[in-house]
């Protein structure tokens, strides 16, 4: 059992990070913290990809003419793209948080929710049966 755990330790880390990230998104009310949680969650995927490309005993895939074992470079390349996407998402998310703070004067989920309930009450004023 322990061996299984140790042999696949990279996956356990991935799962741990993934669940931590999701948990932060679910449980934290602060919008910035949610974005950070999202980042942690995405990081788990980066590690998943990177670790899967590793070939035991392999080196960096640089052609030197000698007969060597290389790690698979494709997942690494792929994850570069994913990292860029992650950065863009984080930037956009934080930009939204800034705008939300300007509009609502808060970045706390529950306070914003209350403000929106008031918005809706205004919408519906005297208009519901």
């Amino acid at each position: 059992m322990l061996e299984l755990f140790l042999a696949k330790y990279n996956y356990w880390i991935v799962i741990l990070l993934m669940m931590t990230g999701l948990y932060i998104v679910v449980a934290r009310g602060n919008l910035v913290k949610k974005i950070i949680g999202l980042n942690v969650f995405q990081t788990s995927v980066f590690i998943l990809y990177i670790s899967m490309g590793k070939v035991a005993g392999g080196t960096a895939p640089i052609l030197t003419g000698r007969d060597e074992i290389f790690s698979n470079p494709i997942p690494h390349v792929l994850i570069l793209t994913a990292i860029v996407v992650g950065i863009a998402t984080t930037a956009l998310g934080l930009a939204f948080v800034v705008r939300i703070r300007e509009a609502y004067d808060s970045i706390e989920d529950d306070e914003i929710d209350d403000a929106e309930k008031q918005d809706m009450a205004r919408d519906l004023e005297g208009r519901l049966p």
């Binding site: 998104v25 679910v26 449980a27 009310g29 989920d109 929710d113 929106e116």
Partner: peptide
């Protein structure tokens, strides 16, 4: 309106 956290919980 469902809060985003609850949405993720559904996921």
């Amino acid at each position: 309106t469902v809060r985003v956290g609850n949405g993720v919980a559904w996921v």
